[in-house]
Design a protein around this nucleic acid. Structure first.
Lengths: 232, 232
DNA sequence: CGTGAAAATATTGTCGACAATTAAAACCAA
DNA sequence: TTGGTTTTAATTGTCGACAATATTTTCACG
């Protein structure tokens, strides 16, 4: 069936990615090359290459002679990431407004309807996934290769990670309404409006994630201080 | 003196970078791991890692089982690259306008004066270098880590490559005047204006580079057709 | 006990060899 | 010659071992 993935790196990369994004390997924790290699039954060569790829995706930070750690953003850095993302996706919307094809437009519309259905059904996983798909499709429609690579190659993995690890019950109703308006603006060819609406949409997502990250950090700090007290 | 660069990759990386940026290894040409390794007296391991780093910097394109090639942009892709850059550096200007410190501002002013002096002296190399420095300093002043990494880690190497390989006698007088206005806007804290001026500044650079790239491509096409005729 | 130096351990960096795959050459048929 | 096949060579992918560096542990001394 899934016959490809000819190289070992490709095969394990997605697995490590998922382990990081889900938090199975916690943010900030050290990654040992040998144990990763043993875990997947491969040698350290491909493991190192996978780690370098993860570094490009900004999921991992590496230092010479010291090793790799799972990335961990401060609240400030998370906000910076979202700010950058909003500018880039706003640009994507503006470009898409001028160039988007009929089939791409129909695909976006169909996706939106499925999202609305998933909202009715309460299918939370699908909502999460289709939120991502929505943004991906617009990015693809921008028809700017470097913009696409920057967003999907370097920024989106981190976004997904923090979305996943801070996700409770989101703000699905309002988010879908925002999607609707963005699509309408693109359909109208109003790039300036689409840009603005996308930036606002992402800014709301940023606030949501920021709040939850701060909550989580407080809990962790509390748990840690409790732990250190017990160890004295 | 220069005591660091503890790892082999760091040592050879800059050399390969320069070979690519100067065109010593031509755009689009294949890169052989073994010959690179032999050339620098190291094994293929570090060589592969260096190539992967160059891939992150977008100076190299790699394909599984096929190998690495020096990146080669079409005119369309070059324009997309510049368009992305202008949006990001516009953003950097806007952020810098709000946050820049006095010392950073003075450093920018000093750089500008040196640029003007280099213009008088006709020091072309220094002009080229300080043009880059100017943009770097503003990017640094933006105080957004992800923006910085995107620009200096992924985009600027390609920009430098195409700047270098298409550079004749540039448009130095007007460029410096534009720098002056951008700095003034930042000093005034007028982020919106600084953003606009930077985008225009880069757009002019784009046009300049585009024209020269098209010229070069025509020359190459002519030379190539001549060559094939002779081989018949 | 605490602190700092020294020894021991663990981890990353580098190498050379072999396997898997692709690119080039040789070959044959039309 | 040309087009397609098979064979050969070249190149990339993977592995295990050793070297260089960082981290942990041990131990002596205050």
């Amino acid at each position: 069936m899934t016959e490809k993935s000819k190289t070992l790196v490709d095969q394990i990369l997605i697995q490590i990615q998922n382990s990081i994004i889900t938090g199975e390997i916690p943010a900030g924790s050290k990654i040992n090359e040998q144990s990763i290699a043993k875990q997947y039954g491969i040698s350290r060569g491909p493991t190192r290459e996978a780690l370098q790829t993860l570094e490009r995706q900004r999921l991992v930070v590496r230092a010479p002679h010291i090793g790799a750690r799972v990335a961990q953003l401060t609240v400030k850095e998370l906000n910076e990431l979202y700010q950058l993302r909003s500018v880039l996706e706003g640009m994507a919307c503006e470009l898409a407004s001028n160039r988007i094809s009929q089939t791409e437009m129909q695909s976006l519309q169909a996706l939106l309807e499925r999202q609305e259905q998933a909202l009715v059904d309460g299918d939370h996983d699908f909502q999460q996934q289709s939120e991502i798909d929505f943004h991906y499709q617009i990015i693809q429609a921008s028809d700017n290769r470097h913009l696409q690579e920057t967003l999907t190659g370097s920024l989106y993995h981190l976004i997904r990670m923090y979305r996943f690890q801070t996700s409770g019950d989101e703000r699905p109703t309002s988010a879908i309404a925002e999607h609707r308006r963005i699509i309408d603006a693109i359909a109208d060819g109003d790039g300036e409006l689409a840009n603005l609406l996308m930036r606002r949409h992402i800014e709301r997502g940023r606030k949501n994630t920021e709040i939850k990250l701060i909550e989580r950090q407080k809990q962790q700090a509390a748990a840690e201080s409790l732990l250190t007290i017990n160890n004295l």
